[in-house]
């Protein structure tokens, strides 16, 4: 069961202590834009989780090889980016063969795969020196952190929409940014926690 707790620990760290969206800013634009479409939260987050896990695992496997492990940051970024592109292309091609999705589905698949949140996961794992279990935990946590961010931003969006007292100058995106800033401030209370020290 130790592996499970290690994974849970890494996931919890990613969700609360260093919420990737609010405290890291990863995938912030996707979260804010997608928060306008509540019906797609779950599928989109599932796609993000899938791509995060797949990329994190493959990158971890590659990093096991000494020749790759000893490369510098630039080469690692290029390799991890290449892995992400390959995972996306393989998934898109496979789906195209099996379920023949429409253009909209493919474009959503694109945005869920090729975004800063998914690309950041293997880079974070490498910087933190995570093993396989923690890498998967971080990847799963990134999906949960994303859906948490979507829910909170969407609830805020709804509140801001209903709020007629907001000064006209702040209505729309300015209020949305300020609301997200407050969410980020609130989650800062968790940062630097003693939970995993």
């Amino acid at each position: 069961m130790t592996w499970f707790f290690d994974m849970l620990q890494a996931a919890l760290y990613t969700i609360f202590i260093q919420n990737l969206v609010f405290n890291g800013g990863y995938g912030a634009s996707e979260a804010i834009r997608m928060s306008q479409k509540p019906k797609r939260f779950l599928p989109f987050s599932l796609m993000i989780t899938y791509f995060s896990v797949a990329t994190a695992v493959i990158c971890r496997v590659l990093d096991e090889r000494r020749a790759i492990r000893e490369l510098d940051d630039a080469a690692h970024a290029a390799i991890f980016g290449g892995v992400l592109i390959a995972v996306f292309l393989a998934t898109a091609a496979l789906l195209k063969l099996i379920i023949k999705p429409n253009k909209k589905f493919i474009s959503t698949l694109g945005i869920s795969a090729l975004n800063t949140l998914v690309f950041a996961v293997p880079l974070i794992n490498r910087n933190a020196g995570y093993g396989y279990i923690e890498s998967v935990g971080t990847a799963l946590g990134s999906g949960v952190a994303f859906i948490l961010a979507l829910l909170l931003i969407s609830a805020g969006l709804r509140r801001l929409e209903e709020n007629k007292d907001i000064p006209p100058l702040f209505r729309g995106t300015p209020a949305m940014f300020l609301y997200t800033a407050m969410l980020s401030l609130a989650f800062t209370g968790f940062s630097g926690s003693s939970l995993f020290s």
């Binding site: 090729l114 998914v118 880079l123």
Partner: peptide
């Protein structure tokens, strides 16, 4: 930090 390579995945 890691934000420079992340520009490649910029929406």
């Amino acid at each position: 930090g890691i934000y420079l390579p992340l520009l490649a995945a910029n929406s």
